[in-house]
Simulated scan of single mutants.
Amino acid sequence: MATIEEHREEWFQILDEYPDDEKPDPENRLAVETSCSGFLGNMWTRATMPEVQGVSLPELEMVFIHYYLQKGDAFSAAMLAAMTELADAPGGRRAAAKGVERLAETGVPVPSWYGEEVTLGECWKAGDHYGDQLTYFCSFRAPSGDHALSFTVDYSEYHFDMVVDCDSTDDIERLLELHRDRNAKFADRLFVPVQADPAELNPGTKRSFEDWDIFCVEGDASRLAPRFLMLRELWKARMRLLPQIEPDEIRMPTDDELSLFASGFVNHILGKIALRAEHFEAIQELCWFHGVNGPRVSPIRAYVFLERYMPAKYEPGDPVVAAVGELYVPFLRWAASATELRPEAWPYFKYKTEKLLEAYPNWSAKDPDCARIPRPRSL
């Protein structure tokens, strides 16, 4: 098992390799915080429970603090000042503050923005009509200069909430304009930014952190959007300024809800397909999965159902698998109407689902662990 001393040596070498000509101006708060957040994001990919891998993120945060304490220059003071906000653990934030004080006592210049109050500005959101994806935008005000962050999450109640993009800027209008222009071109499935209640942001993004924490620590960092690693800790730090509301619990359909959902589709499909036992079992699966957190259909749900849920429960040659393939598009068309999906959003949804069905079933044997594998970010 690796020891903290081995990790200290490794990270001191990594931090030593940071080129001087790429280090941001210590007075540029957003640039320094982004740099600090990037190192913490990469530390996070190499940290986990100490009893499993031997090192935790709070321990690596202390390595970071010790490194910049010993360097003792203006950039080091700026990085420690950033750590007073960005460290995941409260103890790390306190240790960084003491580090800034120690450097100041030795005459090292502390950035002028250190200790200033950051306040929340406006919040916005944009996304799709299916409820699969939302991008949140937040502006923040500070005496040294305003800045803004965005955070994009793909939602899947049964699977992983995935962070698919992040951004930072000193001008929130730049971020909003990009989404206004793009989303307006695809009004059948996307909506342009609208103002959001700040109370939405923590519950809207928290599960994505928890899901990635479970899967990706000491995992395959190539599965992560690169800018997520750069801005993960900066977003988490700014979210501490917002209402600390927990996301709702994932709610499974009750027997009564499942029965009502299934009977509605059976009545719809009767006479159109000769229903056998495997069709009724397939309908139960379709209605249960698409009834999690209330009846809803979407491209992401279709992907997770066909590529993660079914392979986790069935051998590819099972009659239920074939029955699902036969029923799926008719089921989605009926459910889209029953759940009042916008009519203009159906053609794209149908196209994405039919593409998935072209390769279905695409597994060679039942794999219960398949549901634990994140889907591609490109979906």
Rank of each mutant, 00 (worst) to 15 (best):
R141G: 01
E315I: 02
D20L: 05
S56Y: 04
V266Q: 07
H66K: 13
W11T: 03
Y328R: 01
A322G: 13
R227N: 14
F289K: 06
E122F: 01
T48F: 12
H179E: 09
A89T: 04
P253E: 07
E218I: 03
V118D: 00
K185G: 01
P347R: 14
Y136L: 12
L30V: 07
K366W: 00
Q53W: 15
G131E: 07
F191C: 09
L190H: 02
S168C: 12
L306S: 03
F228W: 12
S208Q: 08
A359S: 14
D248S: 14
D188V: 02
E101D: 14
E85Q: 11
A87D: 00
P111T: 12
I300P: 00
P111Y: 05
G115E: 06
E218A: 10
H290D: 14
K206G: 04
T353C: 07
L229H: 04
R333D: 15
K366I: 09
L15F: 14
P295K: 14
D73E: 11
V192C: 06
I300N: 08
L201W: 10
E10T: 09
Y136F: 15
A148M: 10
A104C: 05
F186H: 14
M62R: 14
F209R: 01
P26C: 08
L224Y: 01
L15W: 07
A335V: 01
D154Q: 13
K355W: 08
E344M: 11
K23V: 08
T45M: 15
D181P: 00
E233M: 14
I4C: 06
E6F: 04
K313M: 10
E285L: 15
A199Q: 11
P299V: 10
P24K: 06
F12L: 04
G91T: 07
G271F: 09
G131S: 08
L57S: 03
D154R: 14
K350V: 05
C370V: 12
A81V: 04
D165E: 13
E157R: 14
F191P: 07
T106W: 02
L270P: 00
K98N: 12
G219D: 12
D256R: 11
Y360E: 10
F160L: 14
A47E: 02
A274T: 08
E218H: 01
D318E: 09
L103K: 06
N183W: 10
M62E: 08
I273M: 08
L69H: 03
L80C: 02
G145W: 06
C36E: 13
N362P: 00
K236Q: 10
F140S: 03
A31Y: 00
A87P: 00
L57M: 13
A323V: 09
G127W: 09
H159C: 03
E122Q: 13
I273S: 06
L357H: 05
L270C: 01
F280W: 08
K352A: 15
Q133R: 15
R296G: 09
R102A: 12
E9P: 00
F261L: 12
E9N: 07
R207V: 04
N362Q: 11
P376I: 03
G291L: 13
Y328L: 10
R46G: 12
Y360Q: 03
L270Q: 11
E326Q: 05
N267Y: 05
A221I: 04
P203V: 02
E200K: 04
V324P: 05
A2V: 13
S150K: 09
E85F: 06
T34P: 02
